[in-house]
Design a protein around this nucleic acid. Structure first.
Length: 430
RNA sequence: GGAGAGUUGUCCGAGAGGUCGAAGGAGCACGAUUGGAAAUCGUGUAUGCGGGUAACACUGCAUCAAGGGUUCAAAUCCCUUACUCUCCGCCA
């Protein structure tokens, strides 16, 4: 959520910055009248409540002195009714106001390139050498099928489209990648390993920014007898960032860094027809996530650090990639600044997103109410939160299969993974 | 799933309609004491939203799990929900 004071004091400027995004700003133009009305009502009810509190005290004194308070009590009954009416009105306005605020995206950082479409993203650099093949490179879904390590058809039968089975060395490869990445981040990059719940409540999804605006993107679990809603997590970012929801941290805890593996569930509403084949876009996929809680003044250098940690995975796996600075139109809802890492996919002859690394500044911290104190008795401040994929596992498998494929249809396993593969150096057809 | 007991400030813990933003401890901060420390003593120590100020000061409202209700008045009474603990049942 944005700082209300900031929006109030710099309305036109904030609006201008938000308009550089490719986002619907909802009822933003209602901000000023709603805010004004809201504050008027607050002042009015508080005045009445102050009176009630004062007179109630008098009543208690009168009662103690055995005086007759009937007349005052009758008067206060009316004041009470008035308060109730105003409170109801205020609640409705507050709700409308809050809903509007919760649907406003974050303000882009000044270093973010202004753009109107995907093509306006700025490439920082490329890493690695794109492989050349003296045979016709196959798409990863064909490689996987020929090696019998992924079963898309039975995934569709058992669950539905965009679900799959990994099988044999495919399942082993998936598991090896998870372990390899977790070990790298935990042992060498200083992250604390975490295994979070994969179901969360509504407050958590609101805290990280998926709700209320992107309800259709998440899987909701409905049980008629329950009043509470549960959701399958779309990313481990949700449970891990909400780990500190409604808490005040001490300054020596910062920065706090977690790495977490989880399955991720996305409804992929609106993406019908896109990437229908292969591992790129599934309803359920695995991912190793990086999350950092940091001091505000450090968050941009921490973003570089975190992005570097994700890049390290690609480098160790020897996968060619490029780093993109996302433009204002492609930032998504919550990020103030975002880098995408895109891995080379030979059969598609293009780079595809495999990691997104973002600084949310205090946007999530405000929603989730995560703060810290610089001194034991100092006023709490919002932390800055960051996260990044380190990496998406399914897409990594796709990249490995395509980049390391051989003329005979086999796939070489990068050396760093072999200890995790029980020494397997190459996956060949049986 | 059944029965019961709980949920109060950073933590422990009192409080059972009015004098309660909340006793008492602990912790932490600052000061005194000390050669220095421990101990001791003193002072301070929640958050949010407003008003106010150059900034302080000062000041209003709200918050005792969450939401609703009763009442002139709720931490305290009633209802709903969540969570924790104990026992039973079921179970990977």
């Amino acid at each position: 959520m944005l700082d209300i004071k900031r929006v109030r004091d710099n309305f036109e400027e904030v609006k201008k910055m938000l308009l550089t995004r490719n986002e619907d700003l909802g009822n933003l133009d209602n901000f000023e009248p709603l805010d004004k009305k809201r504050r008027e009502l607050i002042a009015k009810t508080e005045e009445l409540k102050a009176e009630r509190n004062k007179v109630s005290e008098q009543i208690s004194v009168m009662k103690r002195n055995k005086e007759d308070a009937t007349e005052v009590i009758t008067r206060m009954r009316q004041v009470g009714d008035e308060i109730k009416t105003l409170d109801t009105e205020l609640n409705a306005i507050e709700e409308e106001f809050k809903d509007m605020m919760m649907r406003l995206p974050n303000i882009p950082h000044e270093s973010v390139p202004v753009g109107t479409e995907e093509d306006d993203n700025v490439e920082d650099y490329k890493w690695g050498n794109v492989p050349t093949f003296d045979f016709e490179a196959k798409a990863h879904w064909d490689i996987a099928k020929d090696l019998d390590i992924v079963d898309f058809e039975r995934g569709a039968k058992v669950a539905g489209s965009r679900f799959l089975f990994y099988k044999g060395l495919g399942a082993r490869l998936e598991r090896a990648l998870i372990s390899f990445m977790m070990d790298l981040h935990a042992d060498h990059h200083g992250y604390t390993e975490m295994l979070p719940p994969q179901i969360v409540n509504r407050d958590s999804l609101t805290g990280t920014g998926q709700l209320p605006k992107f309800e259709e993107d998440v899987f909701k679990l409905v049980r008629e007898e329950d009043e509470v809603d549960f959701y399958l997590i779309p990313t481990a970012e949700v449970p891990v960032t909400n780990y500190y929801r409604d808490e005040i941290l001490t300054v020596d805890m910062l920065p706090q860094a977690f790495t977490a593996y989880s399955a991720n569930f996305r409804s992929e509403a609106g993406s019908a027809g896109r990437d229908t084949r292969g591992l790129i876009r599934q309803h359920q996929f695995n991912k190793v996530e990086l999350v950092r809680f940091v001091k505000p003044e450090e968050s941009y250098e921490q973003l570089e650090l975190l992005t570097g940690h994700a890049e390290k995975v690609l480098q160790l796996l020897g996968l060619p990639y490029r780093k993109l600075k996302m433009c204002t139109a492609d930032l998504g809802f919550v990020a103030a600044k975002k880098y995408d890492l895109e891995v080379w996919i030979p059969a598609q002859d293009m780079y595809r997103e495999i990691s997104s690394c973002s600084n949310f500044e205090d946007f999530q911290a405000r929603r989730a109410n995560i703060r810290f104190r610089r001194e034991p008795n100092a006023k709490p401040e919002y932390v800055h939160t960051l996260n990044g994929s380190g990496l998406a596992i399914g897409r990594t498998v796709a990249a490995l299969l395509e980049n390391y494929q051989q003329a005979d249809g086999s796939v070489i396993i990068p050396e760093v993974l072999r200890p995790y593969m029980g020494g397997v150096e190459v996956i060949s057809a049986k």
